[in-house]
Design a protein around this nucleic acid. Structure first.
Length: 105
DNA sequence: CATTTGACGCTCT
DNA sequence: TAGAGCGCCAAAT
């Protein structure tokens, strides 16, 4: 599901959980992404928390800052408090995005 | 088996 | 609006 987030858009952990039919499993979404070997073809950096912030943690060993750079390179703007406007960037999946399997175009 | 720990999120002050 | 508090739930310890 994360792979379907288009460049320039963002999704929240809770949103991804809900989209895959696992309401309430936001933490597990975060855990899953944390297990990704980097670099990854999956756009993991397009997932932020519900407050519109990158979840910073020393345990991430820099991947949080990498996430910030990747988002900046995709045109995402951060305010003075390192927050993004979910109002503006939140991904609104279309019906075909919700279908299982990987289809193109 | 019992606790603690998170790339979380919502509510109440 | 920023924090604190609490609920959440599987992985880690």
């Amino acid at each position: 599901m994360v792979s379907r987030i288009p460049s320039g858009k963002l999704a929240t952990y809770g949103q991804i959980a809900e989209l895959i039919g696992s309401y309430g499993y936001a933490r597990q979404v975060g855990w899953s992404l944390s297990r990704l070997p980097l670099p990854s073809s999956i756009p993991w950096h397009r997932v932020v928390n519900a407050r519109g912030q990158i979840s910073m943690s020393l345990r991430r060993e820099g991947s949080d800052w990498i996430q910030r750079d990747l988002l900046l390179s995709e045109g995402i703007q951060f305010d003075i408090n390192s927050r993004v406007s979910l109002k503006q960037y939140l991904w609104r999946p279309e019906i075909r995005d919700l279908l299982l399997g990987q289809l193109e175009d």
